[in-house]
Structures are given as C-alpha cells and as structure tokens.
Design a protein around this nucleic acid. Structure first.
Length: 579
DNA sequence: GCCC
DNA sequence: CAGTACG
DNA sequence: GGGCCGATACTG
C-alpha cells in the first residue's frame, strides 16, 4: 500500500518534472541513429554526448553505415578520413559538427541542422568555405578562442557551447587528449624539451607554448621589479587588467553549494565530500546561461545523482534542504564559525565546542590556542575580506621594490588567484627566485625584516626552514603571515615562497594553481610514472625489491610551459587555470 | 560527494 | 604524531 | 568498493 502510494507519488512527481520542464524534457533526439567520428575529440566530451543522445531517445552506432541518420565529427577532414568522402557523398546521412549536439542540449530542443552541416566537397580539399555563412565559427576555430571568449561573454552569441564545454570537461584530458592529432605539429616546439617523458600527446593549443613565447614570458616573469617605477614596466604582462572573472549566471546554485562545501570542510572535516561540491561549483559557475532545468546539465562531469537532486530542489523550490538542515543545527553553526578561523580546523573546532565555547568572543578567552590561531582569531574579520585586484597590484609593487633594493635581479611575482586574473583574491602568494641560481639564498629573511620595518608585514603565522644547505630539504624558504595595505589597519594574508632557480617553474605552477589543476597535474604525473610537487617532477623507479622509489633528481624544466609539455598536458595561460 |  | 594549511 | 595531491611543510 504504502509502497504503492510512494510509487505513484514519485511517478506523479516525475510527470510534474516533465511538465515544468516543458519540451525540455522531451526525447528530442528520438529517431536519430548516429555515428561519432571520435578523432580529435576529448573522450570525456564524447562520453557525455553519447550518453545524452541515448538519454534523449537517440541511438548510437558503433560503426559507420549508410543508413545512419547522423554522423558527428569535429571537422570535415576527420569524417572523410574515417568514412570516405565518396560514401558520405552518396549517402543521405547528415554530417554535422559536434556543436550541434551541444547547442541542442543547451537549447533543450532539437535545433535545425542547417548551420552545422559539414559539407563534403567533391575532390576539392577546401574546407573553410563550408558553413561559414552565418557564423564566423569554423570547425576548428572555436578551439582557439576558448576561455577568453568565455570570459567576456555575457550573452552567448560569440560563445559556442564548445568553449565552455571544453573548459567544463577539462577532466577528460587525462586520456588521449587528441589521439588523432598529427604529432608533428608539436614537434620541435620546445627545442630543449628533449623527450623526457613518454609521448607528448600535444594538444592543439600548443602554439602558445613555443620557445619564443615562453622565453618572452620567462623574461617577463623574471623582469626584476626595476627600481621604483612600478608603472608601465609591468613585468607581468601576463595579467590582463580587466580581470578575467566571468560572470556567474548560476549564483542561485553555486551560493548554497559553496556554503555547504565550507561546512563539510571546515566544520565536519569531510574533505572528500567538500571537494565534490567544490569541483561541481567550479563547473556550474562557468555554465554560460542561467540553468532553469536539470535537463540542461544532465550528464555534466562532477555532477552526479545526489548533486542533481539538490540542484533540482533548488530550481523547483528555491530551497536547499540539506544545507538548511545543517545550518539549523546549532552545533554545526558553531563548528563552521570556529573552523573559519585561520589555524582552526574541524578537530580543534570540535574540541573548543566540547569545552563549551560558542562564540568568537568566548574563543578569545581560551588559553589553549596556539599563537598562529590567536592571530587568526584576532584578525578573523580582516582575513576573510577579499582584496581587490588593483590593491594587490600596488602591494606587489611594494614588495618588488623592496626586494630589488635588497637584491638586484630578484624576481618576485604574485601568483595565486591574482595571477589567474581574479578580480578579488583572498590573499597574496608571492613566488620568488633569482636567475643567477644562488642569490635567492637567505633572501627571504632579509625581505621579511625589511618589509616589517616598512610597516607592510605585520604578524607571523608560519615561518619556514632557515634555509639549510643540506640535502634533505629543497632549499625553499617560506613565510606565511599578515600585511597591511598602506594607510589602512586591515590585515591580509600573505605567503612568500623562495625557490632556487631550477625549481622555480614547479613552484610557480603550484602557487598559481588552482588546486584542481595542481591535483590533476599530480595525478597525471603519477599515471605516467612520475611524482610532481612544487619543486620538481621526479621519476618513480622500481628498486631491486620491487619497491617504488622516487628519484631525487627532477626532470629539468626551465619554464612552466616545459612542465606542461613534459606531462603532455595542454598549455594553459595563467588566466585559463581557473578550473 | 563523484567516478571508475 | 595529528592537525592544519597551500595552490 | 576503493581512490580521491603532495614520500607537501609547518606547529605544538
């Protein structure tokens, strides 16, 4: 009985869903029998498209045959390569660009195929002439603009879905990025990248990563903050003034997700779950349209069953019961509050709660807090306040000026979310090195002392090793603490990391992030028999006993680009690393 | 939490 | 050692 | 059902 009822209820609910989604819920791919030319497509995207085609009533075939209704491909070349120009010409199969599927999914209905047809021209090799009529987008053109167009797009006219899809599906890079790609294209790109690692499965966007550019970038990166003038010197031409932060059209979802992510991480200590929300919201905030139905995001990476249900709830009721439930729990609220203090994590929060403490004011009376935690508490409000980009730029200039006064030729640049182009940052991460390979030694101590004397740096939170010259450490100095924007008492979090020159590219990558990218790179490294961290890329070998041993010598890389390349990961400009 |  | 932090 | 970054690096 009850079961029956429930069933009916669910059925009714599902009908309701269909209702409110209107035509969106229809199986608008019904009747389609499709074959996918996989060449040049990220496996991840392919998987999603196939899945969605099936979900929405279509049929996916393993092989090409003439009775298919549709063939999808990235370009004319790939499809003719696979199926043969003649046979295609003869059959009535619609040969379409993949973007058709993406646009259909976005529109929530079956779109006219006109502008997506890949013309199979007789024996003429001309390619670019096809289907350019209404949009400037040719088969492989969109791949170029990628995120830069994504950033700007408020409307989606210029943004092919493939732009954001590509970004969103970044997760698929692990496999064969572009197995069909002519490897030659990337050969000789980095002359000094003698084949350290296996196959360099080059990605198409590699032109950005040639020696010239990198040399340029490198010299730019390393351009010492010349004496005073921070002005046009601007060693960091990396960073675009406008700021690359794209508009988030789905704050109604990412807001609550971000909250629950913080609770899971800082209050409950469920890192895994928190990371799942984190990844999901980084996907959601890049979707270039306002999500109104879960159907629009069916099959998206990092968004599984549970998150789908949550999103549906938010869309249909405007509420997120899971979050409400947590926030109604007073204990959870206190734990989250305590956990938001720098230096206090879930365990300490719990301990303090168990002591009966409930507010930050009460926390101040606690004598078990460590000095860093005490500072974190004292400036709690300051620290959680985001810093505008232009202020960071000024403070970077301050640090660079003092730095080069102290040590000419020193390279100091602000990484982190600032380097990734964000308009607001939670803190500043300075990555430091010296091209001569030795002058960095002992520099940090001096720098910190000087900046303190200038009343820029204020409190210490964490002090790294006193540059030991022994073999165990990597000779990397670190300093975490607080600073003041000139003329203002508010404190901001600052990190300094000083790297020997040969480790600098690894440090720069690591401290530019984001964390998702770091994890992916490290995972990728591991899959290829290496271990990656912020000071090197180390081969893993098997010793006589069959045990895994990390070699102590890193694969040499003299630029970020080279690290990407040796890992076979498509190059990303800093502002493209907001995965 | 997601994904294999 | 556990806990916390960093991207 | 098991993995999920780092043989992280620092604090106490």
């Amino acid at each position: 009985m009850k079961v029956e009822k429930k069933k009916r209820k669910r059925a009714a609910q599902e009908e309701e869903e269909e209702e409110e989604d209107g035509e969106l819920g229809d199986l608008y791919f019904r009747g389609i029998a499709a074959y996918f030319v996989e060449t040049g497509i990220q496996p991840r995207r392919l998987q999603i498209w196939k899945q969605k085609l099936l979900q929405l009533g279509g049929v996916v075939e393993d092989h090409w045959s003439e009775h298919l209704s549709h063939v999808f491909a990235a370009s004319v070349e790939t499809v003719t390569d696979k199926c043969g120009r003649r046979k295609l010409k003869k059959s009535k199969t619609n040969v379409l660009k993949y973007t058709w599927i993406e646009d259909c999914l976005k529109a929530g209905k079956c779109l006219p195929i006109d502008s997506y047809v890949l013309d199979i021209l007789p024996e003429n090799r001309s390619v670019s002439r096809n289907s350019t009529e209404n949009s400037g987008l040719r088969d492989n053109a969109p791949e170029k603009a990628v995120s830069s167009s994504l950033q700007k797009l408020t409307s989606s006219e210029r943004a092919t879905t493939s732009d954001w899809m590509q970004i969103i599906n970044e997760g698929g890079e692990m496999g064969v990025v572009s197995k069909g790609l002519h490897k030659k294209e990337t050969e000789g790109v980095c002359v000094n990248c003698e084949g350290g690692l296996h196959n360099t499965q080059g990605a198409s966007s590699e032109e950005d990563c040639d020696m010239k550019n990198e040399a340029e970038a490198s010299s730019a990166e390393l351009a010492p903050a010349r004496d005073a003038a921070p002005g046009p010197v601007d060693s960091l031409k990396n960073e675009p003034e406008a700021g690359y932060t794209p508009p988030n059209l789905n704050a109604h979802i990412t807001g609550p997700f971000s909250e629950i992510k913080d609770i899971y991480k800082e209050a409950l200590g469920d890192d895994r779950r928190a990371f799942s929300y984190y990844k999901a919201l980084s996907v959601l905030e890049k979707v270039p349209f306002k999500i109104t139905s879960v159907n629009q995001i069916k099959g998206f990476p990092t968004i599984g069953k549970s998150l789908m249900e949550s999103i549906h709830e938010i869309l249909s009721t405007g509420r997120f019961s899971k979050l409400e439930h947590l926030k109604n729990d007073n204990k959870v609220r206190v734990l989250a509050l305590f956990g938001s203090v720098w230096g206090i994590g879930p365990a300490t929060a719990q301990r303090l709660y168990d002591k009966g403490l409930r507010t930050l004011e009460e926390l101040k009376t606690d004598n078990t807090l460590t000095p860093p935690q005490r500072i974190g508490l004292m400036f709690h409000n300051d620290i959680i306040t985001k810093i505008p980009r232009h202020e960071i730029k000024e403070m970077e200039a301050i640090v660079q000026k003092s730095g080069s006064e102290l040590c000419p030729g020193i390279s100091i640049m602000c990484g982190g979310s600032y380097r990734r182009g964000k308009a607001l940052s939670g803190d500043m991460d300075f990555v430091i090195t010296h091209p001569d390979g030795h002058s960095h030694t002992g520099f940090l101590h001096e720098l910190v002392r000087k900046l303190k004397s200038e009343d820029f740096l204020t409190e210490d939170l964490r002090i790294g090793i006193e540059h030991s010259t022994e073999g165990t450490d990597h000779g990397v100095d670190t300093w975490f603490g607080l600073c003041k924007y000139p003329g203002r008492e508010m404190r901001h979090r600052v990190d300094f990391k000083v790297y020997p020159f040969d480790q600098y590219p690894f440090g720069l990558i690591a401290w530019t992030g984001n964390d998702i990218l770091n994890r992916r790179l490290r995972l990728l490294a591991e899959a290829k028999g290496y271990s990656l961290d912020d000071h090197g890329l180390y081969p893993i070998v098997t010793d006589a006993n069959g045990g895994k041993v990390k070699l102590s010598v890193s694969v040499p890389c003299k630029s970020e680009c080279e690290v990407f390349e040796k890992l076979g990961f498509p190059w990303l400009e800093p502002h493209e690393r907001n995965l």
